[in-house]
Design a protein around this nucleic acid. Structure first.
Lengths: 139, 139
DNA sequence: GTTTCTGCAAAAGCTTTGCAGTATC
DNA sequence: GATACTGCAAAGCTTTTGCAGAAAC
């Protein structure tokens, strides 16, 4: 997680203001392995700052997405939010236990190029979520 | 879409019964390009059979998923349902207009093999949804 | 001091569930 | 005739919104 000054700078670059709520939501996602649902984030925040409201968490998340500090992706009817890091990567989402495991982007650029060439589709592979069963749930 | 007899056989193979509601839900998905949200399916059905209830559509969809006649996949907080066809394929989901375009599976078997070998993850690439912007929404 | 943000409460959208009656086998 | 399925109504869960007050700039 970047330090407070850097975050404040990026928030203000969006014409926004830095607040304790925005800071603690970012801390929460960071503490939750860099990706979590709105509810998980709310629970984490509520344990430390009970005054923070659920609606605020959702509004903060939307703001952070628009500020490109956080990226949303969909899994099984629930939205997950992840910190936008330096390295692009993808997600293995287990439909058994819900565990999300990041994997490096690597050779999928070939796929992106092909999709663009053949379908005119600009894939955003940062948000690619591959559903399946993890090692534990396969047994 | 398979004919009624074949569908009825597969439904009964699950220990279920063939009903007009289950038939018309399958018709709806077929008419909606083979993939649709629960709401789209409900609207299509309601236009032809107003007596069919929303809850029934959801229950039918769950049954059909368990019967492997239909497969669910997640996009932007809404569940989509698709007919399980002969050929596996994937989906390009536009986050601008919500349009879903199927693409052939092709060379992604390499990816599946790699994920299994390196992460012990059994990918279900039938349900792979790639988010991005379609040709129209890019402009 | 102005503008943005938050808390509260209420509501909207999607999905599930309990129950009594109905339809399928 | 026994069992599974449906309609209805109600509720559960996730997410959004209107508004008045508070905080950041």
């Amino acid at each position: 997680m970047d330090d407070y000054q850097e975050l404040a700078r990026r928030v203000r670059a969006q014409g926004g203001r830095m607040t304790p709520q925005r800071q603690i939501v970012l801390e929460a996602i960071s503490a939750l392995d860099g990706h979590a649902s709105a509810n998980e984030i709310y629970e984490w925040v509520a344990a430390r700052a009970p005054a923070v409201n659920r609606a605020t968490v959702y509004r903060v998340l939307r703001f952070l997405c628009e500020a490109n500090l956080v990226a949303p992706f969909a899994t099984d009817g629930v939205m997950l939010y992840e910190l936008v890091g330096a390295r692009p990567h993808h997600h293995l989402v287990c439909r058994g236990c819900g565990h999300v495991e990041p994997i490096p982007a690597q050779a999928l650029d070939v796929l992106v190029t092909a999709l663009c060439r053949e379908h005119g589709f600009q894939a955003e592979l940062r948000h690619l979520a591959i559903t399946g069963l993890c090692r534990e749930c396969r047994q």
